[in-house]
Amino acid sequence: MGTMGLALPWKARIASVPRQRETRVEPSEHYAGGPKPTIVDAITEDAALAAGCRAGNLQTYERLYSIHGARMRNLARNLLGNLGDAEDAVQETFLKVQRSIASFRGQSSFVTWTYRILINTCYDARRSRLRKKEVANDDSGETPRLEPRAPGAHPSLRMALERALATLTKHQRDVFLLYEVEGFRHAEIAGMLEITETASKNTLFQAKKNLRLILEPPRSSAAEAR
């Protein structure tokens, strides 16, 4: 029985992780009872952010940054592999929001739209980095080079996961990062990546299955049926 689980270097430490994360992890899409007041607040906040940015109000941009800046920076860092490129991408995203807010028609939430810009900006940056590498005849591959960062509780755990993530498809990596790392709901991810909610759920499932395969040693063919 004990041989069936993940043989990750960090496996032993996982038990010490707070439960609070688990409650969000899987069934987070389903709220018992009516609409949560926090959702209504979020919609109001979103509309206010969009209106302020449209009006060119710098304080609104600052508010957008205070709410989402850290998360945007973290997402960009995980997509690009280093903080310098991540910060450039976030700054570029703010400028793109400023330049194109007039064309934002509210098809998605403003924040969703902003993250979509960020994700595209990160992929543009990766592509141009790749082109530069090609020009420089450097064939070190397109996976983000991971620079050291502030040590977390389990640095080896993070590094193992980062390496495994680099082997996933773009969509699987995006969905995993957005859902599991940044804590977005599938409905939000669907808007950011312009896919359906079902596709987001399925992609996350495939991503996690692949990550398990990468991180887990080959299993004995022990019978599993019951």
Binding site: I14, V25, A70, L177
Partner: peptide, 26 residues
Amino acid sequence: KAWKSLSVAAQEMRDYTDSPSFWPRI
């Protein structure tokens, strides 16, 4: 347990430490 452990591991990729010079730059 293994399934949930991936979500737990994902938290290690979350670093929301503030960078005081970043907003002024933007």
